[in-house]
Design a protein around this nucleic acid. Structure first.
Lengths: 110, 110
DNA sequence: TTCTTATATGACCACATAATCATATAGTCA
DNA sequence: TGACTATATGATTATGTGGTCATATAAGAA
């Protein structure tokens, strides 16, 4: 199964996807969007970052189709366009927790 | 479910994990290791990169526990230490293929 | 020992990009 | 219209890091 997981054609695309998710603020934004659509201002408040910065990251996420944008009135409402993202995060979180567990075990065993 | 996927404590760790996977050559290495343990030289041949470069990326992957290292004789044998990585790649590949499909559909529909 | 092979590593460069600031655009309301 | 709010974006800076080169380390073979 692993053999077909990554053909050379997709290598760059897959890497790019991972790189998009490799920025804490972007994960924070996605995590907030997990609870439903949010305006830019709401995301600024939730993350504690600045408006231009949040806007720029949203642009990146939008360009790579990780979020959707809908303009209503004066505001822009963003939402997650592919919930599979959270599956990725869950797997990674599982990995990390397991790693921490192992570290703890190794530490107490030495 | 999404609410607990990313607590702020783990944010940096998760982002780092993703960033580690966000480099094509590293994915190429992992993809090669999916078929079993490999020496550095074998990975150099398989990827077409240089020996110092492959070694450096292996160091990174090792530091973050994505691979294991075993020295036998004159060579260092690397192998994947957590097969969950491939599950991540599969999900991302699925996303990308779906995105391409949508693009094709949108293109032919315009 | 010397020679060869295998791997790791420090110095360096080049490039990508995250963050900030200032400003532009656009919508709403009076 | 003007004032205010919400969002986007260009310019700039600073930092991180992928790649290369030269070299160091280490293990076998002669």
């Amino acid at each position: 199964m692993a053999k077909t997981a990554l053909n050379p054609q997709n290598l760059d695309s897959v890497a790019t996807r991972f790189r998009i998710l490799g920025v804490p603020l972007r994960l924070q934004i996605l995590n907030e969007l997990a609870n439903g659509e949010r305006t830019v201002t709401a995301l600024v408040d939730a993350t504690g970052s600045t408006q231009p910065n949040v806007s720029k990251h949203l642009s990146t996420l939008l360009a790579h189709r990780l979020v959707k944008r809908e303009k209503r009135g004066n505001s822009a409402y963003y939402s997650v366009s592919d919930p599979a993202v959270f599956k990725l995060c869950e797997i990674v979180c599982g990995n990390i927790e397991r790693a921490l567990e192992e570290e703890r075990a190794a530490f107490s065993g030495s």
